[in-house]
Each structure stands twice: as structure tokens, then as C-alpha cells.
């Protein structure tokens, strides 16, 4: 359970989030809004990548202001551009990076890497250089790297923006199979099929929050205004 309590944030003079107050308990939550509406900053609050200027964010009772490291083990984050998230040259090396940060070594590390590679169909690419992967394979690797750490929540910031239709479907299928709570920022409304809740941001505030059909309708209305 993630609770955001009267959180506001500003970058310099610009207020990017104003007085956000809500709980996130559903299994599938979509975040939509125009460019610059504050949604990417909002999701960065959820694992302490951004600390709110005022208010607080609690993950299972832990405060991002004090317990960032413990929270990042619970809340994984997948970025829009996988090239910025993959830090080792080989597929298997990159997958091992997050697990090493959890303290895994030796056979236990190898086993978890193998499991993650097999789960996402990346096993044939194990020894491949990351820069030789397709965009979809890179995003799958980024997702696998996060999920190998077994977080209870996965936050994704526009994970399919740079992908073609086939790779979007690969990512959508991978997401659909997850047991974890998924919180996803997206402009791709098809990805929200089957979601439990959609939150709409506009100018740093929540302007709609509820059933996906209502949220999407409000978002479309905002885009056409």
C-alpha cells in the first residue's frame, strides 16, 4: 500500500505537484495526463527518486524521506528509455547488477539471473551485448532487471513510447502476467485495458481518479479542449 499525504513539489519557481493526497492499493493503476502535467514527477515520488518538498509518501508505512533504500527494494522502476537504465554491456551482466545490489553472489545470483532470463524469453540473448538488442528486447531486459529484484510494486514511466506495435504487445503481455502491483504512466490508452483505476493529472493536480472508462474519457476531453 502506497500513501501520498498532501505532497507538493516544485522545481525552482515552478510548482509541478500540488497537494496530492491519495492511497494506491489497486493491482493495476494507470496514470495519464498531458506533457508537463506532473505525472512523471508523481511516479518518481513513489520510490523516493524525488522527495516531496512538503507532505510525505509512505510505502507499507515506510517514509521515502527516511527509508529510501528499503523502499526501492519494494518499488521497482522502469524508465521510458531502456538505454538509460541498462548499465552493463552484456545482457546477463546487467540483469545481475540489481541482484548484486541486494547482496546476492555466487550460485544464488546465477540462479536468479537464469530464472529472470527464462521468464522473459531472454535466455537465448544471455551473452549478447545490450547495444545489439532491439528496442523491445532492451525494454524487456530493463523490466526483467527490475522484476528480478522481486519488488512488490512496479512503476513504469511510459515504457512503450519508443517501441513499435509488436514490441508494445510484448511488453503489454509481460505486464499482464505480473503478480505485482503495477503503476504505469502512459499515453497509450490500449495498455490500460483491464486496469482497475486511472488517475488523470493536469497542471500538477489530480483532475480525475476512478474507473478507467471515466479517467480515459476525462483525459480525452482534456486533450481535445
Amino acid at each position: 500500500m502506497i500513501e501520498i499525504q498532501k505532497a507538493s513539489h516544485r522545481f525552482g519557481e515552478t510548482e509541478v505537484l500540488s497537494d496530492i493526497d491519495l492511497s494506491l492499493a489497486e493491482r493495476r493503476i494507470g496514470i495519464v495526463g498531458a506533457n508537463g502535467s506532473g505525472k512523471s514527477t508523481f511516479v518518481r515520488l513513489l520510490n523516493g527518486l524525488v522527495i516531496p518538498a512538503s507532505g510525505s509518501v509512505l510505502v507499507d508505512g515506510l517514509d521515502t524521506r527516511r527509508d529510501g533504500r528499503a523502499i526501492r527494494r519494494r518499488v521497482g522502476f522502469v524508465f521510458q528509455n531502456p538505454d538509460h537504465q541498462i548499465v552493463y554491456p552484456l545482457v546477463e551482466e546487467d540483469l545481475a547488477f540489481g541482484l548484486r545490489n541486494l547482496g546476492l553472489r555466487g550460485a544464488a545470483l546465477e540462479e536468479r539471473v537464469t530464472q529472470a532470463l527464462e521468464r522473459f524469453g531472454l535466455a537465448p540473448l544471455r551473452k549478447r551485448s545490450a547495444h545489439l538488442l532491439s528496442g523491445g528486447e532492451k525494454q524487456l531486459l530493463a523490466l526483467a532487471g527490475v522484476l528480478a529484484m522481486e519488488p512488490s510494486t512496479v512503476v513504469l514511466d511510459e515504457p512503450t513510447t519508443l517501441l513499435d506495435l509488436r514490441n508494445k504487445r510484448r511488453i503489454a503481455n509481460a505486464l499482464a502476467s505480473l503478480d505485482q502491483q503495477v503503476i504505469m504512466v502512459t499515453h497509450d490508452l490500449d495498455l490500460l485495458a483491464g486496469f482497475d483505476r486511472v488517475i488523470v493529472f493536469e497542471a500538477g493536480r489530480i483532475v480525475a481518479d476512478g474507473a478507467p472508462a471515466d479517467g480515459v474519457a476525462r483525459y480525452l476531453a482534456l486533450m481535445e479542449a
Binding site: T14, V16, G33, N35, R44, V50, D67
Partner: peptide, 18 residues
């Protein structure tokens, strides 16, 4: 621990791209 102040962690200071 990455931060005990109101400052965002290093690398998250710029406005996030929405």
C-alpha cells in the same frame, strides 16, 4: 540512506519529463 532532507536525490533534481 539516499536522503534525509527535503532535497531530491542526486539525479532527480531536474523536472521529470512528462
Amino acid at each position: 540512506e539516499p536522503s534525509t532532507t527535503d532535497e531530491p536525490p542526486k539525479g532527480a533534481q531536474r523536472p521529470a519529463s512528462d
